[in-house]
Every structure is written in structure tokens, then in C-alpha cells.
């Protein structure tokens, strides 16, 4: 199954989803699709004006451009996802996921799609980490 991960650039979630037998949908694929387009020269990510305008599908023009640009990348993946794993309160949320408003919207879009979704809190202790991994494993195995 295609499983959207949030934060979309998380190494840990990407690894666990793949390890437990599913296809993680994260930031890297949609960015690679753009940067490998040799017809564009808009470094570093080849996010184009059309992308940002395309983000209007997810948020109105009064919403800052950086949010619309991000939603233009993640939105289609959320649309394609069959399930999602969200790690809440992750202390690592830099780079692609540096904007809190975008991240809130991503979580909302997942919920609005009504796909199976697991929310796990970022573990603070080893015990919590064990529980988090066990729950992610259980959720992913349950997806069939």
C-alpha cells in the first residue's frame, strides 16, 4: 500500500514503512521528479511558478506562497495515499517541513481524505520508542 508519511522527509518513518512492507510516500520522490527535469533550471528544487499557482487547489491566494508551494508538492501524494503515518511533536521538522502552518494543513488534508491513519507521538524515552515502533508495525501489518 502507498503510505504517506508526515513529516514527509522523515528518515525514520520512511525506513519503518518500507521495512514493514509498504511503499512510503514522502518528500523525496516529488522533489526528485522536479530536480531530474533537465528542461528546468530553477535551482535548487525546480519548484516553478506553476507549482505554486497549482497550490491554489489546496489553499487560497491570501495564503503565503511558501505554504502553497509546499502543498503543491505534498497534496498530490496525500491524494494518492491509501494510508498515513503521522509522527506528532517531532523535534526534527526542518527543511521541507519547516513551516508549521503547512504541516498543520498536511495533517488536516490527511484527515479529510478519511484514509486509515496512525498518529504516534515523538518518543522521549526508550520505552516510548518501543511502543511507537510496535504501534507503527501493528498498524502497517494491519493494512494488509
Amino acid at each position: 500500500m502507498k503510505v504517506f508519511i508526515d513529516p514527509p522527509n522523515s528518515l525514520i518513518l520512511f525506513d519503518l514503512v518500507e521495512r514493514f512492507g509498504h511503499e512510503p510516500l514522502g518528500a523525496m520522490a516529488s522533489i526528485q521528479e522536479r530536480i531530474d527535469n533537465i528542461e528546468l533550471d530553477m535551482p535548487p528544487m525546480n519548484v516553478t511558478l506553476d507549482d505554486v499557482v497549482g497550490g491554489l487547489r489546496y489553499a487560497g491566494v491570501e495564503v503565503p506562497s511558501g505554504i502553497r508551494g509546499r502543498l503543491a508538492l505534498w497534496g498530490p501524494m496525500i491524494d494518492a495515499a491509501e494510508a498515513a503515518v503521522i509522527m506528532t511533536d517531532a523535534p526534527f521538522s526542518f527543511g521541507c517541513v519547516g513551516c508549521e502552518r503547512s504541516s498543520e494543513m498536511v495533517k488536516y488534508l490527511i484527515q479529510r481524505r478519511g484514509i486509515p491513519c496512525l498518529r504516534v507521538g515523538y518518543p522521549e524515552t526508550e520505552e516510548e520508542a518501543e511502543d511507537a515502533v510496535l504501534r507503527i508495525k501493528g498498524f502497517l501489518e494491519g493494512l494488509g
Binding site: P44, L49, D51, P64, S65, G66, G69, L73
Partner: peptide, 15 residues
């Protein structure tokens, strides 16, 4: 900065 790469303006800044 925040948002330049996702707003398609980073290359304009560098230019």
C-alpha cells in the same frame, strides 16, 4: 529565509 525554495524564488535571489 523561510519559504524561498517552495515559492519558486530562490533562483531569482541567487540571480
Amino acid at each position: 529565509s523561510c519559504g524561498t525554495e517552495y515559492s519558486s524564488v530562490q533562483h531569482e535571489i541567487e540571480k
